[in-house]
Simulated scan of single mutants.
Amino acid sequence: MLEKIQSLCKTHKITLTQLERELGFGRGALYKWTKSFPTADNLQKVADFFKVSTDYLLGISPFTNAKEAGCSIRVAGMKAALDSPQNKKLIWDAARINIDSGFWFKDSTRKYIESLLKKEAFTDVEYYDLSLFVVWELILPPDFRENTPVVFVLWGQSITFYLDYWSIPKLTIEDKESKIFYKEGLDDVNGEVSDEYTLSEFTDRPTRYLATERVEEQDALTGSYEPETIAAHHDGEEWTDEELAEIERFKEFVRSKKRDK
């Protein structure tokens, strides 16, 4: 733990003594953490100062914070998925559905993804954007120290893969770098009209689902999930099955945003 703190101090151009002074610790207090465990409150103070997670300081997670985890895993996962012809087809099909539907995304975003589908190689930001565009649910392991897979849930399908979380490149992609935008004026599930959102607002702090939570629902051969039955009426209006599915997907995005606040 002390080595991580020393490394963070070096990055932020601050000495251990200065850090102790900033946090109100006694001189040499951090060195004592090599022999005795710090209080949860003091550990949190160090994490907050550097804007990292306590999991990172404790060696539970290789990622400094949830945003870095989400960006790194999405990019590495999309690279791994596109290496498989079968998974690449699933991703391309999911992208095409969202491009053609025009339900959530601004026209500029749909044209941008359309252009990506014609490319042979992507930048890290483009891998990230493609993931945001097609992945409806990112299922992460509860503990990065375990050999547990990541799951990308797409339209009626899922892609399961393993990553070496500790060795994949660590990335943080800022909102201004992304070109994924919702249409303006989409209704929230509570009836509130939203402003334009970047999709990363829904995924900055990815929810840490257990990768085994939906195993019973998953088809062992295809990796697909049985769709839930959706009522033929929604808020008193007539909708097609495809439109109802789109509405439910949008609701799940909004629920994810609420969970992540």
Rank of each mutant, 00 (worst) to 15 (best):
residue 1 M to E: 05
residue 1 M to D: 04
residue 3 E to K: 15
residue 4 K to Q: 12
residue 6 Q to E: 11
residue 17 T to E: 13
residue 25 F to W: 00
residue 29 A to P: 04
residue 32 K to D: 09
residue 34 T to K: 14
residue 36 S to V: 10
residue 47 A to C: 06
residue 51 K to V: 14
residue 52 V to W: 11
residue 52 V to N: 08
residue 62 P to R: 09
residue 64 T to H: 15
residue 71 C to G: 05
residue 77 G to Q: 01
residue 83 D to M: 06
residue 85 P to H: 02
residue 87 N to F: 10
residue 87 N to V: 00
residue 90 L to S: 01
residue 91 I to F: 04
residue 101 S to N: 11
residue 102 G to Y: 06
residue 103 F to E: 10
residue 106 K to P: 01
residue 107 D to C: 05
residue 112 Y to V: 04
residue 112 Y to E: 08
residue 119 K to R: 14
residue 120 E to M: 09
residue 120 E to T: 15
residue 121 A to N: 14
residue 122 F to P: 00
residue 125 V to E: 10
residue 127 Y to A: 03
residue 131 S to D: 01
residue 138 L to I: 03
residue 141 P to V: 02
residue 151 V to S: 09
residue 153 V to D: 12
residue 155 W to A: 05
residue 160 T to L: 05
residue 161 F to Y: 01
residue 165 Y to H: 12
residue 166 W to N: 11
residue 167 S to P: 04
residue 173 I to V: 09
residue 174 E to I: 15
residue 177 E to D: 14
residue 178 S to Y: 11
residue 179 K to T: 02
residue 184 E to F: 09
residue 193 V to N: 03
residue 194 S to R: 15
residue 195 D to V: 02
residue 196 E to H: 04
residue 200 S to P: 08
residue 203 T to R: 07
residue 206 P to H: 04
residue 208 R to I: 15
residue 211 A to G: 01
residue 211 A to T: 11
residue 212 T to N: 11
residue 218 Q to M: 13
residue 221 L to M: 10
residue 224 S to P: 05
residue 229 T to G: 02
residue 229 T to D: 10
residue 233 H to M: 12
residue 240 T to E: 01
residue 242 E to S: 02
residue 243 E to L: 12
residue 244 L to P: 02
residue 246 E to L: 10
residue 249 R to G: 01
residue 250 F to W: 14
residue 251 K to N: 08
residue 255 R to K: 13
residue 255 R to L: 09
residue 256 S to Q: 14
residue 261 K to I: 13
